Amino acid sequence: MKLIVIGGTGRIGSQVVQKLTAAGHEAFPAAPSTGVDLISGNGLDKALDGADVVINLANSPTFDEASLDFFRTSMNNLLAAGESAGVRHQVVLSIVGVDQVPQLDYYRAKTLQEDLLRHGPTPYSIVRATQFFEFMDAVLSWTSDSDTVRLPATRIQPMAAADVVAAVVEVSTGIPLRGIRNVAGPDVFPLDELGRITLAAQHDSRTVVTDDTAGMFAAVTGDVLTAGPDAQLAPTHYRDWIHQAH
């Protein structure tokens, strides 16, 4: 099977390429560095020539309103090039609960991407994952100073990037879902508690202050970022992962 991984040089994409190749598939990254421009469409037709599956892991360079244009243009270009190339399966990596947070521009943009895929010409699969363990340092940095980190008590169910990779590979090498596969970590945490666990594991003396107005996730209420009963739960626990990482 020939699979083209859009964004195949990034954190998730490079691991997806490696895992597919190790399983005996033909897997090729497509990114600006390989001559593929999703916005202009340059290089797409050549990259998708002979492909059975396209895995779309491309991310917007911004999280603001401009992300809507990025996902609209890139998805439309990818669907058109895929149809022309005879691609049989288009896969997108998205976010658990993405359609429940319209107040976040980036989440509205990812919802638009899903909708375009769903109504496109090619059988499709959507893999919705929860927040990655690896992004916690960035989340901590958004609302921190030398003494404190302010975080809301938003409930999240994070998972390891390696487990996201495994889910993407499993779905991409199967028959199109024509729907959504939700994947999540095994544990739910309030974000402020996860911040305290992270700082303790890193021997960081800063204090976490619960502030339900702090950072991007302050806009999220309830359990929309946690997985429902239909989700596949990944095996890696955050406490195990963070202690191995440090």
Rank of each mutant, 00 (worst) to 15 (best):
A47Y: 07
D187R: 07
V188T: 14
S172V: 05
V183W: 02
Y107R: 04
A184N: 02
D52W: 08
G120F: 01
D145A: 02
H237Y: 14
I242D: 12
L151K: 02
V164C: 13
P29C: 11
A201F: 11
P176Y: 04
G8S: 12
F70R: 10
R150I: 01
H237L: 13
L199E: 07
G7S: 14
R196N: 08
H237W: 06
D137H: 04
L78D: 00
Q100D: 12
P186H: 09
I197Q: 07
H119Y: 05
G7I: 14
S33D: 08
L117H: 01
V98L: 07
L68T: 15
A85Q: 10
G179S: 07
F63L: 15
E134K: 02
W142K: 01
D137K: 05
E65T: 12
A234K: 01
A166M: 04
P152F: 01
M75F: 02
G185K: 05
M136V: 14
T236L: 11
V165F: 10
F132C: 00
G24T: 04
I95P: 00
D49H: 08
T130G: 06
L191W: 09
E65L: 09
A162I: 04
S67L: 08
L112F: 00
E170T: 13
Q157F: 10
A22F: 02
V224A: 12
T221M: 03
